[in-house]
Design a protein around this nucleic acid. Sequence first.
DNA 1: CAGTGGTCTAGACCACCTT
DNA 2: AGGTGGTCTAGACCACTGC
Lengths: 239, 239
Amino acid sequence: MSSMANFQPLYKQVYELLTARLVSGQWKASAPIPSEMALAKELGVSQGTVRKALNQMVAEQLLERQQGKGTFVAEHTQESSLFRFFRLREPHGESLIPRTQVLSSLRRAAKKNEREIFSLDSNEQVVELRRLRFLKDTPIICEKVIQPLSIFPDIDKEPQLPNSLYTLYQEKYGISIVSVNDELRAHTLPSEFAELLELPVGAPVLAVERASKHIDGRVVELSYAYCNTERFVYSVQHK
Amino acid sequence: MSSMANFQPLYKQVYELLTARLVSGQWKASAPIPSEMALAKELGVSQGTVRKALNQMVAEQLLERQQGKGTFVAEHTQESSLFRFFRLREPHGESLIPRTQVLSSLRRAAKKNEREIFSLDSNEQVVELRRLRFLKDTPIICEKVIQPLSIFPDIDKEPQLPNSLYTLYQEKYGISIVSVNDELRAHTLPSEFAELLELPVGAPVLAVERASKHIDGRVVELSYAYCNTERFVYSVQHK
DNA sequence: CAGTGGTCTAGACCACCTT
DNA sequence: AGGTGGTCTAGACCACTGC
């Protein structure tokens, strides 16, 4: 080799390759991926090296392994994905499953900041979706979701949106949300949302601005949510 | 062995043992801990098994490793520990170092919920500390910290509290905060804090209720903070 | 130079699942 | 029984650090 400047550990190269395969969608969520031995033989590395790459992917929750059965693409199914990033719960209590009602959906040109965040061309369109979420039949969150049409073609034509959008993203568009970045503020409730949340105008609400990232690192969804935190809290565990 | 019911992988036993050593404080933060080879020989296991235990501790940010130099107790020093759990920053920007001013400190009997959370006897005392934190010379957070005296003897006698309490906990009391659990709400600002935060009574503020845990899993500190989020946001990254 | 951690391999044995 | 992942070992070589 002419230079060591591009040196990458073998296990990392394997990790990159396998992650690319996962992203490309060539592994079905229902069947196990090839075994350690099969991958090692195919790639010409030792089983231990494949194992190290696979374990890193497990740590990032891209894969799940079961002794004796095999290694599987992590299923970000309804409930688990809802729980994974949805952080509202009863004080000191458990997570709850929210119910969701779609309020409206419209296409419009992307704004300047959206074009920057999503890396869009100047005339591209996005879908702006408004939803109301309920916990225990109480309206608790009013949210606005921004989706680029170039990433989610005709998503506004979907007949019925599931409770968890991330499931739809994965199944219909091959987009796996692996990390989200939330910025939280306290706001006074804007008048346009007061009736929906059954709160007086000016009541304090938690404003959550979220950017969601696909496996490849691109931001593919933005959302802005106003949460009533009278009876529920946003919970964070740092380790 | 008479039964396999208590089977634990070797590396996990090593992990437990080394974590216990770390907690006991017998490793100085300045000097490297024994090398992989030395630990492997002492414990009668292979170097690879020691490595697996050490790498797990690195993943939990209990240790830090540097190629060629050695393995060190993670320094939760001023800046790094402040950044680790302190989540207020400029929108879309970097973390900032807060300045801190102590307002008051008093001893009192533990309340019922505090006795439960800290596992205290019925007549034990706690210290209630009030502080004001500044970002860029703007008062931004008013907080109340609860510390059990049985865990932090005479902490209210400390002549000068550092900007980061966690540093003091580690150096003087052998308490390492390894995880915190925050519950966030939007509140209206109570009148007692309005003047301190230079905000009108009733302004929306972010209320953060935090429980901090020592390595052994015990909650050793509670804090209640009111944050002005007009110019700064509480940032969370989920992976 | 010797000592440290980082990577990579090969092989053994175990526990678990399916057939 | 045969295949899977999980653990453990031993040894080789590399990269970085400090003397």
